[in-house]
């Protein structure tokens, strides 16, 4: 095939992996023989690869980093290893042997490391028991082991328990003072009264409360939210979730979830 417009018009779909197999093979064969078309494809790729930067920035939940690192620590057999088209060197080479992973060392101390490790241990296993999924248990065990190894980690994972108003409710709060963020995932909360929403708080022993933000739940009572920690979180010793009238900024409603820090 000559280097005509027809073959070049296939380059965008080829780069994005959107050609039919026979067309993709045709392009591959052509590229193998035509250096100028390889260059033209590279130019198309460079422009298309910038498309993500036209997307407005959204902040991922603070807990996502911990989950990414936990997933990376899982046994490799749990991950599909089929070759992927996005691989810049799609040569179907054997998967590399994963070397022994070593822990990172950038986390700064927030709570005493020992107390943190105990909290993580209890929280993660309580959560695993709640979920009752063996696969989830494996994942969480790996996460727990990883977090335990990080003696100086600033990441604080706290299990929150339902009060008498929501005995079936559970959740996990992940606080990252280094980033100043907090994420809360909850399950099995009852529906809020009309005109009310759930609101998460940090509460100090004297009763001072800092609002972490509101949270919606779905029809199963599951919800999640992300918020900012106060500049100095040390006076606060409890995480609570209450129901408050929509728009209210004061903590006055009944407590549905609670945990000490």
């Amino acid at each position: 095939m000559e280097c005509d417009g027809r073959i070049k018009d296939l380059f965008p779909d080829y780069h994005l992996g959107q050609l039919q197999p026979e067309e993709a093979e045709e392009v591959r064969r052509h590229l193998a023989e035509h250096a100028s078309c390889r260059e033209a494809l590279e130019e198309v790729a460079e422009v298309l690869d910038l498309m993500p930067f036209a997307v407005p920035a959204s902040a991922p939940p603070p807990s996502l980093k911990a989950r990414v690192l936990a997933r990376a620590s899982e046994p490799e057999t749990m991950e599909s290893e089929a070759p992927e088209p996005e691989d810049p060197k799609p040569d179907n080479a054997p998967q590399p042997v994963v070397p022994a992973r070593t822990g990172g060392g950038r986390w700064r101390i927030f709570l005493p490391a020992a107390a943190g490790a105990i909290l993580v241990f209890l929280t993660v296993f309580a959560w695993a028991a709640y979920l009752g999924s063996e696969q989830e248990n494996v994942r969480l065990r790996a996460e727990n082991q990883r977090l335990e190894k990080r003696g100086g980690s600033s990441l604080v994972v706290v299990g929150v328990e339902g009060t008498g108003l929501a005995p079936e409710a559970r959740g996990t709060a992940v606080l990252d003072p280094a980033d100043g963020t907090v994420a809360l995932d909850v399950y099995n909360l009852p529906a809020t009264p009309e005109g009310h929403s759930y609101r998460a708080w940090l509460v100090a022993p004297g009763g001072d409360a800092y609002s972490l933000g509101t949270m919606k739940t779905d029809d199963r009572g599951d919800g999640r939210m992300a918020g900012r920690l106060p500049k100095d979180p040390t006076p606060y010793e409890t995480v609570q979730v209450t129901t408050e009238p929509i728009g209210a900024r004061e903590r006055a409603g009944p407590v549905y979830l609670e945990s000490g820090l």
Binding site: S58, K65, V68, G103
Partner: peptide, 15 residues
Amino acid sequence: GQESALEALYDRYGG
């Protein structure tokens, strides 16, 4: 196999 490098990669491109 340095996990801290993966963490740094996430900090750089996770968002």
